[in-house]
Structure formats: C-alpha cells, structure tokens
C-alpha cells in the first residue's frame, strides 16, 4: 500500500510510538488525577530530603562536606526534624551565601 523505504518506515514508526505514548499518558492523567504523581516529574526530584537523608546520602553531593553532613544529622538529633530549610542558617558556618547554594540541593517535605 505504501511504497516506503526502510528508513521512512522506521521514522514513521518512531514518531507514532512517541505520540501514542504521550497521548496515553495525557489521557491516563486526565482520567485518574492521582496517577499524576507517578508520571509527572516532582519539583524536588533532584534534591535530597534533609529530614530523611543519612550520612552517605548527604555526602553524595559535592557541595556538602563531611563536617556539614554530620552537623545536619546532629541538628536533627538535637532539635528534631527541620520544619523549614531556613533553619539551616542556625548551623554554625552556614551564612547567606552557603545557604543559597544548599537550597539548590536540599528540601524539606
């Protein structure tokens, strides 16, 4: 029916597959809004949860030194979970500039 070359068939198949998957996702989310959490990217996806992260997880970021990671864990032990990321400034050695950097890496749920 269609006089297409192999490359043309592959390209059409690829584009249709991408469109089909996209349509299915859009439709699924429309019908079941609670599924949005699974298929859509969370704002904090590439950040570390400051209240649940252990030492190794905190050290995974180059911007967090061993001393800072230990201080964060100690703060959690002494004061309980962080309610706001601003509480980081209460840790010795964290000024405005360092806080701005850490804001990009850490988050409070």
């Amino acid at each position: 029916m269609f006089a297409l070359t192999k490359e043309e068939r592959q390209a059409i198949l690829f584009l249709l597959a991408v469109a089909f998957i996209g349509l299915s996702i859009n439709l699924t989310v429309k019908l079941n809004s609670h599924l949005e959490k699974i298929v859509k990217v969370d704002v904090n996806i590439a950040k570390i949860d400051i209240n649940t992260a252990n030492l190794d997880e905190l050290l995974r970021s180059k911007s967090i030194t061993k001393k800072l990671a230990q201080d964060i864990i100690q703060y959690r032990y002494l004061h309980g979970a962080f309610r706001d990321l601003e509480e980081l400034k209460e840790i010795k050695g964290i000024g405005e500039k360092r806080y701005e950097k850490l804001k990009e890496i850490l988050f409070v749920k």
């Binding site: 469109a19 998957i21 996209g22 349509l23 996702i25 859009n26 298929v39 990217v41 996806i45």
Partner: peptide, 18 residues
C-alpha cells in the same frame, strides 16, 4: 499544538532516566 503529546513522552522517559 502537537508538542504537549511529545512532551508527555519525554517527561516519562526522563523520569525513568533519573
């Protein structure tokens, strides 16, 4: 007008990559 459909697939693929 077709971009949102392609964007949804990209979002899912990138989520899986992460």
């Amino acid at each position: 007008s077709l971009a949102p459909v392609f964007a949804a697939t990209n979002e899912l693929l990138i989520l899986i990559l992460f």
